[in-house]
Design a protein around this nucleic acid. Structure first.
Length: 399
RNA sequence: GGGGAGAUACUCAAGCGGCCAACGAGGUCAGACUGUAAAUCUGAUGGCACAGCCUUCGCAGGUUCGAAUCCUGCUCUCCCCA
């Protein structure tokens, strides 16, 4: 029994930031084993942006580990809360989504969560289920459970007030809504991102006020994106769960070295000792391993193999990649200035951008650097190869 | 309800009548180097078939030879007082 508890505890604990509190979790685990009743572990997803990325995968992977131990994961799709927008970690008022937008995101969300979770074994609930039933008086009663003082002492609100940024009254309701989910679900444990601690604790408090067993709260770190800032789709520094293996592999190889350790512990199941060895070795090898692990998890080890080989070929050995897209000559005429050709082919967003690329020596025509944007390019007899930067290749055929 | 402050390019943020397509930082892109799409260094970063031209500084008007900069109205935000 003791060993089993320790084993489960270790899974819960790996990589966490906060665990409130561990003693209670131990008690819950013991009870769970004695009554052979799995723990209910709640996790809320905010269906505001439709694409999940590796940052979302961190808690999802933890949930998966917990599922594998036999506990019950309850996934709350915050379709009602999405209309408020979580103020945590935000220094801006978030746009309130409409019902329709939320509906639209929902399906995609479940699919993407299934990349990580055992979706069959997951209880999925939408919180509109209970919030639809609430009337204004219920809301007032709920709002009375929180004080303004506690609310505004939060860091995110402090910052926004100092920066003289707007804070909507409805934003104060967000933690209460999330907390109410816990009352409805009667979960034993709730998991969240590092910025979620406040929200989680509100749930604990609300449960307690209703004579329920207060939930154990634990949080996972927010991982850095590729540029070192918090991973977020709006920063454009994220890697999507459904990205192609090659893209995923390459982007991981672009990760800065200091982030590797965190990514290993949070996004792979490589044992700590092995991670240590890897990190002590050559950074490139370690990063390649990291990329393989992650691509294998989201795709397959075959896909990881292919991606790894392609990456080495293209970037280490400086060979042409194997699969180069072919486009037809884009216009009626037989001749185009290079910069215009690039724009027409979509290799540059605008002709100004195309000019810059060419002038900076980033464009090769059949392997030769060409720095004159106005150089005339003839419609090819059979085909020619355009290369823009290190990553964009395109063959052009006469049409 | 009264008084004050503010809205600038992807983001943050200067500029407050001509020298402004708009300082600086981040991001992004390119180049060099390398260990890689790390790190570091250099450069570019509104559009246009581009030594020129065109459109941008919340929105709409106005003053002026000339406006991101001044005036009027509108929209949105913040602060203080009530």
């Amino acid at each position: 029994m003791k060993e089993r508890i320790a084993e489960h505890l270790a899974v819960f604990r790996r990589g966490v930031v906060d665990l409130i509190d561990e003693k209670q979790l131990t008690v819950l685990l013991r009870k769970s084993f004695e009554e052979s009743r799995p723990l209910r572990v709640k996790f809320g997803m905010d269906p505001s942006s439709p694409d999940l990325h590796l940052g979302h995968a961190v808690p999802l992977m933890k949930l998966r580990d917990i599922q594998d131990l036999g506990h019950q994961v309850v996934l709350i799709v915050g379709d009602a809360t999405a209309m408020v927008g979580d103020p945590s970690g935000r220094n801006k008022l978030r746009p309130q989504l409409t019902r329709a937008e939320v509906e639209l995101n929902l399906a995609t969300y479940k699919d993407q969560a299934a990349c990580v979770l055992d979706i069959e074994a997951t209880e999925i609930r939408q919180n509109s289920e209970w919030f639809d039933e609430m009337n204004f008086y219920d809301v007032l009663e709920l709002a009375g459970r929180m004080t303004v003082a506690r609310m505004i002492e939060r860091d995110t609100f402090q910052k926004r007030m100092q920066a003289q940024e707007p804070i909507g009254i409805h934003e104060f309701l967000y933690p209460l809504m999330q907390g109410w989910d816990s009352v409805e679900i009667a979960n034993d444990v709730e998991l969240g991102g590092n910025d979620q601690l406040f929200n989680l604790l509100v749930g604990r408090q609300l449960q307690e006020q209703r004579d329920m067993c207060p939930q154990v709260c634990f949080t996972m770190p927010l991982i850095n994106g590729l540029d070192g800032r918090k991973m977020s789709k709006s920063y454009g520094n994220s890697i999507g769960l459904t990205e192609a293996p090659g893209e995923m592999f390459g982007k991981i190889m672009a990760l800065d070295d200091p982030s590797m350790e965190a990514w290993f512990t949070l996004l792979t199941r490589v044992a700590d000792a092995e991670v240590e060895t890897l990190l002590a070795g050559h950074p490139r090898e370690a990063k390649a391993r990291l990329a393989r692990e992650i691509v294998t998890f989201f795709h397959s080890s075959d896909a990881a193999d292919v991606a790894s080989k392609a990456f080495d070929r293209q970037f280490r050995d400086r060979q042409l990649p194997e699969n180069i897209q072919t486009e037809a000559w884009p216009v009626d005429g037989d001749e185009l200035p290079l910069a215009i050709l690039l724009k027409e082919l979509g290799l540059a967003k605008s002709s100004s951008e195309a000019r810059r690329l060419v002038q900076q020596g980033g464009v090769r025509l059949d392997g030769d650097i060409c720095q004159d944007p106005m150089q005339a390019v003839l419609r090819p007899a059979s085909e020619f190869l355009l290369q823009v930067g290190k990553r964009r290749f395109q063959r052009v055929t006469p049409r």
